[in-house]
Design a binder for these strands. Structure first.
Lengths: 163, 163
DNA sequence: TATTGTTATACTCTATAACTATA
DNA sequence: TATAGTTATAGAGTATAACAATA
């Protein structure tokens, strides 16, 4: 349990990290903005995904992933095949061109980070990754409100009268 | 010096932290979006600031801070007084109403963080803050290309011939 | 009737460029 | 001529709501 001043400072740093993200965004290819790049990365990491699974991983509305996916498909970097098991669904898969683009994205961001973090130790970078991963896990999917109160286990007692 | 896979993972987590920021953004008052809130926070922390200083702290273009400042001034949360020393400049200062809003912002973000990070120790939160602060320091202001080579300290040696 | 996905619309954030006033 | 700040405009990210197709 931390103190209020710490939470304020953490909020401050979360806001400030936007500057880092903007710098990373500036090195992206012109036709692959950050949102599309994030989708490519997740497909590379998790393999084929449905739109809904992708939206959940990104913690954004499905309408957002739909737009990004349309952008990627238009560039030939992913293909959206109908799911034979559920004709409403579409399955996203990287194409060879998409994998090439993903490689290029990785190359660029790695290069920038390696330059800017040249004086960090591997352990320090690892620490930051661990903490950010854990932080992320605490957000994004508001812990579903505790199930509607399991009411009470069925018992043999006489239920209280409803008023 | 870290490995490529680590940099890739760090880039991934930086992208994912957007979900955290969106959650924090959702609890803001309707008339105080995240950009304006960031300005209030910096004024609270650094005291009166010029537009240009604010832009540098936020690592955004001055046109951006100008917009946010106009929004805040319109709500009566800051005042922009002319700098007597340089009539082109404006100095931003929190008004009492602005300080009240800042307090409310702090209250809300602290409450959310305290809830979501209830199982973090103070030391863990402190670690994350330290690492994020250091990360931020490595970005935002592309280290100005090393000064045009301080040429060479004046010496008594005969300078090499320029070619 | 509920769910998957798409599209239209609106809002926020940011950068670029043009402009005004002052240095 | 250079700098501080403003404003207009454009691009990107996201959310909401309405809609189509399927379950």
């Amino acid at each position: 349990m931390a103190e209020q001043a710490q939470y304020e400072e953490l909020a401050r740093q979360l806001s400030a990290v936007g500057a880092v993200k903007r710098d990373l965004g500036r090195i992206l290819p012109a036709d692959c903005p950050a949102g599309a790049a994030a989708v490519l990365t997740l497909l590379g990491r998790h393999g084929d995904l449905r739109m809904s699974a992708l939206a959940e991983l990104l913690a954004v509305d499905m309408s957002v992933t739909s737009r990004h996916a349309a952008h990627l498909a238009g560039r030939g970097w992913i293909e959206r095949s109908p799911d034979p098991a559920d004709k409403r669904s579409r399955i996203l898969r990287l194409t060879p061109d998409g994998e090439a683009m993903l490689l290029e994205l990785s190359r660029r961001s790695t290069e920038l980070l390696a330059e800017r973090l040249s004086d960090w130790t591997e352990e320090e970078v690892g620490q930051l990754i661990r903490l950010m991963t854990r932080l992320r896990a605490c957000f994004g999917a508001p812990p579903p409100p505790p199930p509607p109160v399991p009411v009470r286990e069925p018992t043999t007692r006489t239920p209280a009268q409803a008023t």
